[in-house]
Design a binder for these strands. Structure first.
Ligand SMILES: [Mn+2]
Ligand SMILES: [Mn+2]
Ligand SMILES: [Zn+2]
Ligand SMILES: [Zn+2]
Lengths: 139, 139
DNA sequence: AAGTATTTTGCAACAAAGTTGCATTCTATA
DNA sequence: TATAGAATGCAACTTTGTTGCAAAATACTT
């Protein structure tokens, strides 16, 4: 079970520590994106500061990505294997925020359509976030 | 000069106060979206709490809208006249975040393309945010 | 125009979120 | 197993956001 987390850390040339493994396991078993606070609760044996630094490290290596939200919270989710092996984030899927259950989901199968920017603008990254009611809450 | 701000406040059935006029003037003369902190600096005669409450009021009335960003900051920008008269926000344009100058721009002429969500999801709102280099910084 | 009801503001106190420096502990490697 | 370098925990601090309440300003009635 720890095999996958250790593989990810090694691939990203990060030293293997118990907090990094724990936080990775949390992401691997999560079905939704997580806020810093969610992780704090699920990894309460570790210091808040360690979690801040670990998330930043994972972002730098393309292990996780952020999802912008309309409230003031950032959500984090695992990147695809592809990001992890290439060492930087380059996903292209839409994110969904459920107004009822509050969950944030990566819609891996919905890709962001291309847009044309006005002349003079150069695009580096694009984010698309949809609010609404998720499948589970609709039932 | 205060005519336009007073008109907006009256249209939204808000009482006319000096802080509301000042904050509206700031938005009207701004070419970019503003963070809470930007407004604090430009309206330093008013209490921080008043600015929080005023922004919330303006959001409720569809006078301004928020722009989600990849860092943990919310930017605010004026809505179109259409939102103001109808009393709720319903813009549909792309937002641009310049990685160089840090400015956040409403690309009023670039509309968000439609997407198809997986079965069972219901869409209420959609946001599209592009990072890159803006026109001014490219020159 | 003055008086009154209602709304808004500022202040204080607080809570939550995020940052930094440094001593200690842990990890990788020889 | 010894050691250099990296990561962690802790304390102190800053920034950001929230709440209750008294004072002030605004809108409304007469
Ligand atoms: Mn995602
Ligand atoms: Mn806008
Ligand atoms: Zn839901
Ligand atoms: Zn720029």
């Amino acid at each position: 079970m720890g095999a996958q987390t250790e593989f990810i850390l090694k691939t990203s040339s990060l030293s293997i520590t118990s907090s990094r493994k724990k936080i990775l396991e949390i992401f691997l078993s999560a079905s939704t994106a997580l806020a810093h606070q969610d992780i704090e609760k699920l990894a309460e044996q570790y210091d808040r500061v360690t979690i801040y630094r670990t998330l930043q490290t994972f972002l730098d290596r393309g292990i996780i990505h952020t999802i912008p939200t309309t409230d003031n919270t950032i959500k984090y989710a695992l990147c695809s294997d592809d990001c992890i092996t290439s060492g930087h984030h380059h996903d292209n899927h839409v994110h969904f925020l459920c107004d009822q259950c509050g969950r944030t989901l990566c819609l891996d199968d919905v890709s962001i359509p291309a847009i044309t920017l006005p002349k003079g603008y150069s695009m580096k990254e694009i984010n698309m976030v949809v609010n609404g009611i998720c499948k589970t809450c609709m039932e």
